[in-house]
């Protein structure tokens, strides 16, 4: 979170990606609007946002493929796109899906991309291509024309291209798009092993469960703006924790909760077994305010409910999931925001 405070803000030198006021205008539309990203070195950073929220455009700006309308980017501590030739050999990227020469084999495509970098050592090219293909499980399809690859095979080859050399930063735009469950698992463990080797992984994704599993940090984009960023714990905390009460005495329970200063919402009967209704009430964030006699502690809520004769059949405190947080920040609407 930008509001996380200076104390927890990583030192500037420790940032792998840093953008300040980054904006990109397409005609009338601001596709990226004043984005201040701070990606710490060594993190696995999830980059989230609905379709058309500007994730890929931000990645293009970061890699010097497109020029920013305003704002600046620092990658691995160096100015982009000014220091592009210094920086990019240390960065592996998958941008908006893979792209290849369909008439060449998978291995030949990797040779060609590797040879495009004049500083990539030609002597080790063969072994690097081979090990990249091995890492994504494409060894047996290496000599097949890319034209004959399936969607997931192309995706894997795209990831292999990002892994052609030892990288300090990997920028992966929707890496698991089109992958089978094994491929998805493989990418997950790949990302973990890259991070274990000390690389920073910046991964844009729509699979929130995925992000919750592999990422240490995340940022959420909405209509070109960065609406939240921080560690996963910080992101979840910013959404309030809440209590969940299962009881047949919904009305009485709501009154008790109101007395405790909690606003309860009945979300209807729980299942068809007649166990009662489910009530949700957000817990105020942070420690209970002084003088409020600690009434908001969950155990105190249970005690008060029981004392008032409410038949409590279920009680839980819940953290909001990343998905709920995501929807809260980016809106329920399904339509693409322009």
């Amino acid at each position: 979170m930008t509001a996380a405070g200076a104390a927890t803000e990583p030192h500037v030198a420790d940032l792998c990606i840093e953008t300040t006021g980054l904006s990109k205008r397409f005609g009338q539309q601001l596709a990226v609007d004043g984005v201040d990203l701070a990606v710490p070195r060594g993190s696995v950073f999830g980059f989230l946002g609905p379709n058309g929220s500007g994730k890929t455009t931000t990645i293009r700006l970061m890699l010097g493929l497109a020029a920013a309308s305003s704002g600046s980017v620092r990658l691995l501590g160096q100015e982009m796109p000014g220091q592009l030739r210094e920086v990019l050999p240390r960065v592996g990227a998958l941008v908006e899906g893979p792209a290849f020469y369909p008439f060449l084999s998978g291995a030949a495509n990797l040779y060609r991309f590797d040879a495009a970098d004049p500083r990539a050592p030609a002597a080790t090219r063969k072994s690097r291509v081979h090990s990249a293909l091995e890492r994504v499980g494409l060894t047996h399809a290496a000599d097949k024309k890319v034209r004959a690859y399936s969607l997931g095979m192309k995706q894997r080859l795209g990831i292999a291209n990002a892994l052609l050399a030892p990288r300090e930063l990997l920028v992966l735009d929707e890496p698991t798009n089109g992958l089978d469950p094994q491929g998805t698992r493989e990418v997950r463990s790949l990302v973990r092993s890259l991070a274990a080797d000390g690389a920073t992984v910046f991964v844009s994704s729509h699979l929130l469960a995925e992000v919750e599993q592999i990422c240490t940090h995340a940022a959420i984009m909405s209509a070109g703006r960065l609406v939240a960023q921080g560690t996963l714990a910080q992101l979840r905390q910013d959404g309030q924790a809440r209590i969940r009460v299962l009881t047949p005495d919904a009305g009485a329970a709501a009154k008790v909760l109101a007395r405790l200063g909690l606003s309860a919402a009945v979300s209807g009967p729980a299942g068809s077994n007649g166990a009662g209704d489910v009530l949700y009430a957000p817990l105020p964030a942070g420690p209970p305010p002084a003088g409020a006699d600690g009434a908001v502690a969950p155990e105190a809520v249970v005690a008060a409910l029981v004392a008032a004769g409410v038949r409590v059949r279920g009680f839980a405190t819940e953290q909001v999931s990343l998905e709920e947080r995501f929807v809260a920040l980016t809106g329920e609407g399904f339509d693409v925001v322009q």
Binding site: L63, G64, L84, L88, V95, E96, A99, P102, A120
Partner: peptide
């Protein structure tokens, strides 16, 4: 058109050189 231009540029091939 193939989309390979972006991968050549991030290799990086260098725009003038390309």
């Amino acid at each position: 058109g193939l989309g390979t231009l972006r991968y050549l540029l991030v290799a990086p091939a260098g725009r003038v050189r390309l």
